[in-house]
Nucleic acid binder design. Structure first.
Lengths: 343, 343
DNA sequence: AATGCTTCCCAAAGCGCTTTGGATTTGTTT
DNA sequence: AAACAAATCCAAAGCGCTTTGGGAAGCATT
């Protein structure tokens, strides 16, 4: 069923039917009603492609997912973020188009999306420090919104980010207040902006308490269970091992916990752990009493909100870049306790 | 830059330029070369929408991701599957469009995708037992391919599945051969087809060895760490606890391991664990020596292959439904050992 | 020179929608 | 009753591409 057939069926012109369906005022209420009923009856939906061609709008948002060629990693938060964004798109009649691309060909993809007019805007995932994509997208004139921020980028741009610095500073403060002085950081890859900020927050806290920064207690890598395990296992074997951990992800934290237990120690008693918790649907941090003390911020909510922000900037072009910063909720769980007395 | 401008620039008609770019033979080699160079120079890409309108093909595949309203769960394998499928699409000039939808409105979405001619075909995710989507898509005449199978569906359809029955039967056999007689199953939701098949494989093995099926040792739920933990913790407190576990997911297995350790037991010695391993990028099962004994099958590869199968059936319509079944690799890790002697 | 083949190219229609610029009808005002 | 405004509706152009149905030029064949 297309517009032509529908309008023939109704004995109206395509113009009138189109207008009736799109809420233009030049149509009488009675006609509009009749048209709407018929559209429902015949399950008529306008062709996105034709509509896009005619209006010049794609009614679609692109998500470019970089998959690092070295690690073949798909960021685990991605699924939940997309789910959140998808809700927003569905509500607004937009489609989400996804491009998986190795980080070599990223620029290529953005150019192609632009010149094919395939999308009205894009969401930038996984921003890195000094990320070149901001400048590129600005040049291309393709509206975009970043999930995260870009350190060293002085161009204005629209983004939504968690307050990573604040969260990790606060978490480190909390551990300090419990008496911990040897606090380790199991971070994500620090060329990623979020990981960089978290380290800075951690360091800021240490500095403010006069604790020297010990690089032996810091690691930066992919956030997998194995890597968390290996990093913590080694550190706990040090002559002067950490008594507390700060993890960038619940998955890393699971590895850290395993390392703690493999050393015959007890989490929450011998070694404390705080992790960032993205509230992934398949990795809940316990029920009412969280297992891990955590800095919590739902990545799904982030997806929903950032998509809203992007649609907004697309609709009302000419407004200044939006900047949304979400504060983490600090939840106390069973994984932290007073630092053990030295014997 | 559009076709009109490009052809004006070259002093050729749109027809010729279009044909040159699309590999039709009616163009001299010299002209084709000239056109291709110009296209590259001006970074010309045909508008997907216009192309789609003209050809009647969308050059896009839809992925409908059901998000259960009760659990708000996004299947964790989804990210990796999509990454695999995306590789295939990129290679073939297709786009992937994603719809997130709560399971109430699923049918609606398929109808809409069809009537808007937004996609050339869809991938069906998370098939359930007796899933009504097969019949629906057949009715709609929308080409599709299923990631998994549908028990109780006698319509022919294209799918790719892991041999779940075989894998779990084999895993149970393996545990039996190690002397285990109390073998527990921590399964996914058994209205999902894959989980149903796994249970049947497990039961088939038990039956063939004359072991009675004990429902106290079986549970079926979302595959999260917490749920795995809780199920195993309870079962291990039984008067006659299991000595071995079969898990539907590495994430559940992490929970089971924690439960084992919280009971003061050692995995691989006191209690054995075998899990299915989807080879998710952020949840590797160890390096050279796997932590968990596992039935392994990469969901990313599955995504890549299923997308290929779907594109194939779309190109060569009129060929019978394709059925691909992948056998799991059985890898022995550190989590299994001989059943402990009864005292 | 007329005929028939290729080879190479083009004008124009059409895909399904929106939107411009009227046309027609109806209602209101004097 | 004439004149004008408002309310409804419509024909046709246009979005950027593909594809049909030729047409012109070049060459070899009669």
């Amino acid at each position: 069923m297309n517009l032509k057939e529908l309008s023939k069926n109704l004995g109206l012109s395509q113009t009138t039917v189109s207008r009736a369906l799109n809420g233009y005022p030049e149509v009488s209420a009675a006609t509009r009603h009749r048209v709407e009923r018929a559209a429902k009856e015949f399950n008529y939906h306008p062709s996105t492609r034709a509509k896009g061609l005619a209006t010049g709008r794609a009614l679609a948002i692109g998500h470019v997912i970089p998959v690092s060629t070295q690690h073949e990693m798909v960021n685990p938060v991605f699924g939940d973020f997309i789910a959140g964004a998808g809700e927003t798109y569905a509500r607004n009649g937009f489609e989400m188009i996804l491009s998986i691309v190795d980080d070599q060909n990223e620029e290529q993809i953005y150019r192609s999306l632009k010149s094919r007019r395939a999308v009205d805007g894009v969401i930038v995932h996984g921003p890195r420090i000094d990320d070149s994509r901001i400048a590129l997208l600005n040049d291309l004139g393709l509206p975009f919104a970043v999930h995260g921020q870009v350190t060293h980028c002085d161009l204005p741009y629209t983004f939504l980010d968690v307050n990573n610095h604040e969260a990790f500073e606060q978490a480190t403060d909390y551990l300090f207040d419990l008496g911990h002085r040897r606090i380790a950081l199991v971070n994500g890859l620090e060329n990623m902006d979020f990981a960089h900020r978290r380290r800075r927050g951690y360091e800021a806290s240490l500095r403010s308490h006069g604790i020297p920064i010990d690089t032996a207690l810091m690691c930066s890598n992919e956030m997998t269970e194995i890597i968390g395990y290996e990093a913590a296992y080694k550190q706990l074997a040090l002559p002067n091992p950490p008594t507390a951990y700060l993890c960038a992800s619940l998955i890393s934290a699971l590895g850290v916990r395993r390392a703690i237990e493999d050393h015959g120690l007890t989490m929450g008693k011998d070694v404390s752990v705080i992790t960032h918790d993205d509230v992934l649907s398949y990795l809940q941090n316990g029920g009412d009493t969280p297992i891990f003390t955590a800095t919590r911020s739902s990545v799904r909510t982030a997806g929903r909100r950032l998509a809203e922000v992007l649609l907004n900037t697309i609709q009302h072009t000419m407004q200044p870049p939006q900047r949304v910063i979400l504060e983490c909720e600090f939840v106390v769980g069973q994984s932290t306790g007073p630092a053990p007395r030295k014997d």
